[in-house]
Simulated scan of single mutants.
Amino acid sequence: MADEDRVVIEHPNRRKASSQLARLVVIVLLLASAAVVLIVSLGGWDTIEGAKPLQVAYIVLYVVFALFVARWSRGVLPMIAALAVILAIFGAVAAPAWFDRAKDGFTDPAIASDVLGLLCAVLVALQVALLLSALIGFRQRWNVEVERRREAAPA
């Protein structure tokens, strides 16, 4: 048997319950954020001025990042945290604007403006939670590898 056949690579930090929980929380928050952005985008599509490509990009990126995190990719976590900060800023700016549109004289979006404003406020809270969860996951060092020799089978 060759030497490389006797070596097994393990990731001990991935077996910890805290690492598995952090990974699950990041995935759920990414998918929930993508869903909220999708609802706001579709609900206000006719009244949104110019951020449509950016919203579509966030939806696609968050779903792709959820797949990466599901495969234990630790490298995307800092990028997730950075994008969460940017999206939280956009949501914090957009929420009052949607609430201001809930008056006479404005074009009505497909979903009520108050609901879209509330969803933007929820999006801000989701992004803060996503930022914290991504940073916690990054500190858990999912990428640590330990080589272990496989014991030979008894003859």
Rank of each mutant, 00 (worst) to 15 (best):
L31D: 14
V122W: 10
F68H: 09
A66S: 12
A88Q: 11
L130T: 08
V124F: 06
T47C: 07
V36E: 12
F68C: 15
A155V: 07
V122P: 07
Q127P: 00
V25A: 06
R150Y: 01
I89P: 00
R23A: 09
L130H: 08
K52H: 10
K16E: 14
A70W: 09
D104I: 06
A97P: 01
A66W: 10
Q55T: 04
V115W: 13
D108S: 00
L31F: 08
S113F: 00
S41I: 03
R101T: 03
V26D: 10
V56Q: 10
G105A: 02
V7E: 12
W72A: 02
L132S: 08
A70L: 15
G105Y: 01
R71G: 06
Q20V: 11
W142K: 02
G44A: 13
G50Q: 03
I80F: 04
Q140K: 10
A84I: 14
V37S: 11
V115A: 14
F90N: 14
A153R: 09
W98D: 15
L116Y: 05
S19K: 02
L29Y: 04
A155K: 13
Q127W: 05
F106W: 05
L118A: 15
L54A: 12
V128H: 06
A97V: 08
L83W: 02
A134G: 08
I80G: 01
V36S: 14
H11T: 11
W45S: 09
T107W: 00
I59T: 05
P53D: 03
D5H: 04
D5L: 06
I136H: 04
R141C: 00
L31S: 10
L116M: 12
V28I: 11
Q55Y: 04
A66Q: 10
M1K: 10
L119I: 07
L123M: 15
A125Q: 11
D108K: 02
